[in-house]
Design a protein around this nucleic acid. Structure first.
Length: 559
RNA sequence: UGGGCCGUCGCCAAGCGGUAAGGCCCCGGAUUUUGAUUCCGGUAUACCCAGGUUCGAAUCCUGGCGGCCCAGCCA
């Protein structure tokens, strides 16, 4: 699909202006800085598209992938692997610029000693509980730590001993010496280093002290010569600290932090804590459960990288609080797949139809276009036999002027096939349930409209003997409320029990049995379906990524 | 009764003193062997509210109101 030009937003405005004014010598260098403590989700995609996207829009622009791995307690290589896979899948490349904050641990340590020498940082003995008490509140200033005025030599000695492992976890921290009375809580002598005897997924047991985000992030940006450090709104209050640290240390490069609002999407949650809870509780089948807003979940569901990029373009970048409608995401997928997805037929709720005037031993080959508007996608063979299946929904005993599918005594067109007329509905004598339909076909109607009468309905079908049994999974929103973040209590309890529906008796046209990988199919009249990784050669399994727009469903709802 | 940020159509979102872009949703209608697609057409006298400045304000000023974020040795 052709990708539309990115729209302009306030960040691109700032960058264009900076480039024009030769700020940073006219360089543009961004970074995408995930913490490897969970899987990427659609909110990260927004940031990825912004950071990698804006870099790609300018000659010489670059974007680094940088793992913000300063908290080994929560991090794991499983996540760094999945993050790389997801960024790549989305269509972006960091070339040889994949970095880790942990790459800079030594430099960060040296810089911390320099900060101490400058008299701008000190070792504090307060416990975390005491520190909270000393911090004050939103409306009252904090109190200075008793250790705040330790001499440089003592601070240096203590900090070195923290690194050497002379103190237990939590016994001491290194703090910035800023202003305990600042109205901005982040400036009340924030912690820069803490003692943690934890094996780091990359540096192993080399370090016993780890830098905090606030200390490591801006310096990592500066060390990589990032020009524009784009992050979400909750870091706005941290910007003064970001700037303060860079002001003290005076590195050669001076990045600038700009914040934008994070994405929230209707009927789902985006916080890693809640996503973890869903996975760990078993409420979903894993990070790549097709109901999850994770990149891996969307991928398994059948979303394409193109559609996700288009979605990110559509939602724009701003600072306003927002909650985007799920319909927009669906629209982006439909738009992409409408043009590219090969068509096929599958019957989800089979109803047997017996064509009484068609020989029982005959198999007629019919050809069907793989795409109605794109001949280049070729043709495929369909098999017409005496017994076929149609969708239960596509038959009604009684006609109504709105309903234009098959009714008793009425005619309907079989998609890519003949017109049939229903003569009789065969019912189970006990339950009264319709078990089969007796129909006749009109041999003169293949690729030709019947003369003298108008057949307005077209339904999909599959041969009873030349089709395969398979499984189809249909999805509904993970939560029934549009804003599950507003719910009280554990998020897991609010998962929509009908968010997944597994249909095990579906009938698929033969071409679908061997389908593998690639983009989803459009099952005509039903939606776009993507082969699931649990499918076996003898047992196809498909996930419905999104349904087709359904005007009939709307008409029925209004009734 | 601390600080920061935000408030333009149901949902996103342009707009940067000259008289409200666009997308999604929704509603009509045309074409259609997918009730799909496509195509036409409709949808904010109005920009949180109230004052003010100006020939002219969504855009500037003042004062309100509403929402979000911050008191991790998380990011």
């Amino acid at each position: 699909m052709t990708e539309l030009a990115p729209t302009v937003d306030f960040i691109r405005d700032i960058i264009s202006r900076d480039l024009g004014n030769l700020v940073n010598d006219g360089r543009l260098h961004t970074r995408f800085p995930p913490e490897p403590n969970g899987y990427l989700h659609i909110g990260h995609a927004k940031s990825i598209c912004l950071n990698f996207g804006v870099a790609a829009e300018h000659p010489g622009g670059q974007c680094n992938l940088r793992f913000d791995d300063t908290n080994p307690e929560k991090e794991d290589v499983e996540y760094v692997d999945s993050i790389q896979e997801d960024v790549r899948w989305l269509g972006f490349t960091w070339e040889d610029r994949c970095f880790y904050a942990s790459d800079y641990f030594s430099q960060l340590y040296q810089l911390a000693e320099k900060l101490i020498e400058l008299g701008k940082a000190y070792v504090c003995d307060l416990s975390s509980v005491q520190m909270r008490e000393y911090r004050g509140t939103l409306t009252e200033p904090g109190q200075e730590s008793p250790n705040r005025n330790r001499g440089v030599a003592e601070n240096l000695d203590l900090f070195r001993r923290m690194r050497a492992g002379e103190f237990p976890d939590g016994a001491k921290v290194l703090r910035a010496k800023i202003d305990m009375a600042s109205p901005n809580m982040n400036m009340r002598d924030p912690t820069l280093y803490r003692i943690r005897r934890v094996i780091h997924h990359r540096t192993g047991g080399e370090w016993l002290i780890y830098p905090t985000y606030d200390y490591a992030h801006g310096l990592s940006d500066a060390l990589e010569c990032i020009t524009h450090s784009l992050c979400t709104l909750e870091f706005e209050d941290h910007r003064p600290l970001y700037d303060w640290i860079l002001d003290q240390l005076q590195l050669p490069c001076r990045p600038r932090q700009i914040e934008f609002s994070r994405l929230s999407l209707e009927y789902t949650v985006m916080s890693k804590r809640k996503l973890h809870a869903l996975v760990q509780s078993g409420a979903v089948a894993g990070w790549d459960d097709p109901r999850m807003p994770t990149i891996s979940g969307l991928r398994r569901r059948g979303f394409t990288p193109e559609s996700i990029r288009d979605f990110c373009r559509c939602i724009g970048i701003s600072k306003s609080p927002n909650r985007v409608e799920y319909a927009l995401l669906e629209n982006c997928l439909r738009t992409d797949l409408e043009a590219r997805a090969p068509r096929a037929m599958a019957v989800l709720h089979p109803l047997k139809v017996i064509i009484e005037n068609f020989p029982a031993d005959r198999v007629e080959e019919l050809t069907a276009a793989n795409h109605p508007q794109n001949e280049a996608m070729g043709m495929r063979t369909l098999y017409f036999t005496q017994e076929i299946f149609i969708e239960q929904d596509d038959f009604r005993e009684v006609a109504s002027k709105e309903y234009k599918r098959l009714v008793l005594g009425g005619e309907v067109r079989l998609r890519n096939g003949y017109v049939i007329r229903c003569e009789e509905a065969v019912k189970d004598p006990i339950s009264g349930e319709i078990v089969a339909l007796r129909c006749v076909y009109d041999p003169a109607t293949l690729n030709v409209n019947p003369v003298g009468r108008k057949v307005k309905g077209v339904i999909h079908w599959v041969s009873a003997t030349r089709s395969v049994v398979g499984e189809v999974r249909l999805y509904a929103p993970l939560f029934t409320v549009s804003d599950p973040d507003g719910l009280k209590g554990e998020i897991v309890e609010y998962v929509n029990p009908e968010s997944i529906q597994v249909l095990t008796n579906c009938r698929l046209e033969p071409s679908l049995a061997s389908a593998n990988g690639g983009i989803p199919f459009q099952f005509e009249r039903l939606g776009y379906f993507h082969r699931d990784r649990e499918a076996r050669p003898d047992y196809p399994v498909f996930n419905r990524a999104v349904s087709l727009r359904d005007a009939w469903a709307k008409i029925e709802q209004r009734r």
